[in-house]
């Protein structure tokens, strides 16, 4: 449903992506792993329209039989409307908005009141703490709670494709496991996931397929299991001797 083809992106004076290509198929969790500065976040920001590629294409088809649209020609707002939701690195919860408002703002483009209310209820079932703390300012939540809120907020636009940047960042292992369990549930409910992670072991464990990004290009790809067993991946990213 997403075809990133040979994109070059400059960011802050550096050539962050040098001809990266990847594909995400409907119903998958695809992991994008790589070292710090390899271009993972840049890849997501380019897909969601925060950055523009200098060359290359980003095509997306929300439905199986729909003709793909070229995302790199669209504004970020239009990309959300097309069905791509980007949950940014570092969670980026709105501190001036309450927990409930942070969820509501995720549905900014939607007008179906009943649908929104039922999605809020679904997210409250997934993350009960967000219901308990609905009235408090977003920045009063703990790191793990903010991650749940960030995922919930990203789901409120009813995306077909969820871009998720470093959900494990700064979280305790137990919380990371909980978040990853929920990712699998989200996938099983029909949302395709493109996951960027430094925690390669966890990411490869739940990923259907994965890509390894190095210095702005894809150097390896395969199923999550294949990559987890690949000697070079084990050496570079999984801490094996």
């Amino acid at each position: 449903m997403l075809w990133v083809d040979d994109i070059h992106v400059r960011r802050g004076g550096t050539h962050a992506l040098r001809g990266a290509s990847l594909e995400v198929r409907r119903g998958e969790i695809v992991a994008l792993i790589g070292a710090n500065g390899a271009g993972k976040t840049t890849t997501l920001a380019t897909i969601s329209g925060l950055l523009r590629p200098r060359s290359g294409t980003v095509r997306f088809a929300a439905e199986p039989d729909a003709a793909p649209v070229e995302l790199s020609a669209m504004k970020a707002e239009a990309i959300v409307a097309a069905g791509v939701s980007h949950c940014p690195e570092g969670r980026q919860i709105f501190a001036n908005l309450s927990v409930a408002e942070n969820l509501a703002i995720g549905a900014f483009l939607r007008r179906d009141r009943e649908g929104i209310a039922s999605d809020v209820a679904d997210i409250h079932r997934l993350f009960p703490i967000l219901k308990e703390r609905a009235g408090v300012p977003g920045d009063r939540l703990s790191g793990g709670e903010q991650m749940m809120l960030a995922i919930g907020r990203a789901l409120m636009s009813r995306p077909k494709l969820l871009l998720l940047d470093e959900p494990s960042l700064g979280l305790a292992p137990r919380l990371v496991e909980q978040i990853f369990d929920i990712l699998e549930r989200i996938r099983d409910e029909g949302v395709t996931v493109l996951l960027v992670e430094q925690n390669a072991a966890m990411a490869l464990d739940i990923a259907d397929r994965a890509y390894v990004l190095e210095a702005g290009s894809i150097v390896l790809q395969g199923t999550g299991r294949d990559l987890a067993e690949d000697p070079s991946v084990r050496r570079a990213y999984l801490g094996a001797a």
Binding site: S48, L50, V80, Q92, F94, A95, N96, L97, F108, R153
Partner: peptide
């Protein structure tokens, strides 16, 4: 609400679909 979100963070506001 969208104005408050925009005042706080342009990038994330755009990711919410806010112009």
């Amino acid at each position: 609400m969208a104005m408050r979100a925009t005042a706080e963070n342009y990038g994330v506001a755009r990711l919410m679909g806010i112009n």
